[in-house]
Simulated assay, not measured.
Amino acid sequence: MFAIVTIAGQQFKVVEGQEIFVHRLEASAGDSVSFDNVHFTSGDAGTSIGTPNVSGASIGATIIDHVKGDKVIVFKKKRRKGYRVKNGHRQSYTKIKIDSVTV
C-alpha cells in the first residue's frame, strides 16, 4: 500500500517502512508524528482519491534524526564593475521513517 501525502509543504509518495528526508520539522529525534493531509491511497482494498484529502486516512512516522544537506554556493557577479558576492547555504532536513499508512 502506498499513499501521497503533504509533509511540510511538499508532496511525497510514501510506503510503509520507507525513510525520507523532509524539510525540518519542529520535533525532537525519536518522537512519533502523524500526517493527515493524505491526497491519494492505493492498496489491496482499491484506490481512494481525496477532494482534496482522503477522509480518515493518516500516516504515522517516527523522527530519526535532524541533518543538513549539501552546501550550495551562491555566486553573484556583475562584469566590469568589480562586484562579486559569494555565499553558501545548507538546508536543514529531518529524516523520518514511515511506520504506518492507515485508511
Rank of each mutant, 00 (worst) to 15 (best):
F2H: 10
F2I: 02
A3C: 07
I4V: 15
I4T: 13
V5Y: 12
T6L: 09
A8F: 05
A8I: 03
A8D: 12
G9R: 01
G9L: 08
Q10S: 14
Q11T: 08
Q11G: 07
F12C: 07
K13I: 06
V14R: 13
V15Y: 14
E16P: 05
E16H: 05
G17D: 03
E19T: 12
I20V: 11
I20N: 08
I20P: 08
F21W: 14
E26F: 13
E26K: 15
E26P: 08
E26A: 14
A27Q: 15
S28Y: 05
S28Q: 12
A29V: 14
A29Y: 03
A29I: 07
A29T: 12
A29N: 10
D31N: 12
D31V: 04
D31I: 00
V33Q: 12
V33K: 12
S34F: 12
F35A: 08
F35T: 02
D36M: 05
N37C: 10
N37D: 15
V38H: 05
H39E: 14
H39K: 15
H39I: 15
H39A: 11
F40M: 09
F40H: 10
T41R: 11
T41M: 15
S42I: 11
D44H: 09
G46F: 03
G46Q: 04
G46Y: 06
T47R: 04
T47D: 00
S48N: 14
I49H: 06
I49L: 13
I49G: 02
G50M: 05
G50V: 04
G50Y: 04
T51V: 04
N53F: 13
N53R: 10
S55D: 13
G56N: 09
A57E: 02
S58D: 07
I59E: 08
I59K: 05
G60A: 09
G60H: 04
A61V: 01
T62I: 03
T62L: 01
T62K: 04
V67S: 06
V67Q: 07
K68H: 08
K68S: 08
K68D: 02
G69A: 05
V72S: 08
I73T: 11
F75D: 03
K78H: 01
K78I: 11
R79H: 03
R79P: 00
R79D: 10
R80K: 15
R80C: 09
K81Q: 06
K81V: 04
K81C: 01
G82I: 03
G82M: 06
Y83A: 00
Y83H: 09
R84Q: 05
R84C: 04
V85W: 01
K86M: 07
K86C: 00
K86S: 07
N87Q: 10
G88F: 05
H89L: 07
H89N: 02
R90G: 10
R90V: 06
S92F: 11
T94I: 06
K95S: 02
K95C: 00
K97L: 06
K97R: 15
I98R: 00
S100M: 09
S100Q: 09
V101T: 00
V103D: 12
V103K: 14
